[in-house]
Amino acid sequence: MTTPSSGLTPQDTLGDVAVLMPAYNGQADVERTLASFAEAARIHVVIVDDGSTPPIVAPTLPNMDIEVVRMPQNGGIERALQAGIEALAARGYRYAARIDAGDLAAPGRLAKQRAYLEAHPNVAGLGMWTQVVSREGAPLFMLRTPTEPDAVRRLRFFRASLVHPAMMLRVDAVRAVGNYRVAYRAAEDLDLFLRLMERYDCANLPELGLYYELNEGGISATKRRRQIVSTLKLQWRYFNVANVYDWFGLAKNLLHLVTPYSALRTMKRALFATHAA
């Protein structure tokens, strides 16, 4: 795999960017996700195989260099991402473009995010608007996340102000705040974003960057209670009594904690039907 250099040629303007994808089984989803990237420059990818059986195999795709970093055993997404960031740093990458197996990238996403981060050195994490789709690919609704850093901070607990698999992160900033951690299981992304926003800014581009697959077998469904408890712990730690949206976010997560998942799923389906009408 090529190592990024300080001087990037026009054909390798993404040479300091690596797509960072943790994966546990799901070879077909890995291949489908990587095949969705469309960029003018060559794309570099680091897959962290979190103990898959059989092991994830790097697909052969045009305009793409792919490396697989293998974890010795399945340790969870938190440890996989932590190892991925360290692998990117060791290879000299400046930017980590997150995506999860099963999601799809919008054309030109990487170039747009890198250009913004180059122009805004205090922004450590940059997301994009996200189209949520069903497992079959049917559009459900659009996540139009707030764009400006102040709004991202203000709404951080009330709504999804940063969509993890749509993010591009500065590798040095992630490492400076302690990398991904296992302290808040299933909410490792929110934990990282909160620590980043203590020292840097986070923002969103008001453009479609990701097609996010709503998978009821994903972390948000299978580890729902753990995720809510971790989120509540983070809310308690970073709670701002002067921010009304922190209060709204606290009430929302307490409601989620006591509401059966089946009831929430029914409400979501009703919401999806409203958006589709």
Rank of each mutant, 00 (worst) to 15 (best):
A115T: 04
R114A: 14
A41C: 14
R109E: 07
G51A: 14
S134M: 04
L126V: 11
M64H: 01
P55Q: 13
G84I: 10
V45C: 08
N74T: 03
D50G: 07
Q82C: 12
G51Q: 13
L34K: 01
E86Y: 07
W129I: 02
E31R: 00
P107A: 14
R70H: 10
E78I: 02
M64N: 01
A97M: 06
N122H: 11
L104H: 09
G125K: 10
G51K: 06
L104Q: 07
L34E: 00
A87E: 09
P54G: 09
I43C: 15
D50A: 07
M142I: 15
I43E: 13
D100H: 11
D100R: 05
A83C: 12
S36G: 02
N74R: 13
E31Y: 00
A106M: 09
R114T: 10
I99V: 07
G76D: 02
G137Q: 06
D49L: 15
R79E: 05
A28C: 08
I99S: 00
A96G: 05
A41T: 13
A101H: 08
A138H: 03
P59N: 07
R135K: 10
V45F: 06
G84C: 09
G92P: 03
V133S: 05
A87Y: 12
A101P: 04
A35N: 01
A124V: 12
A35W: 01
Q131C: 08
E86T: 13
A111W: 09
I56K: 03
G51T: 12
A28M: 13
I56N: 01
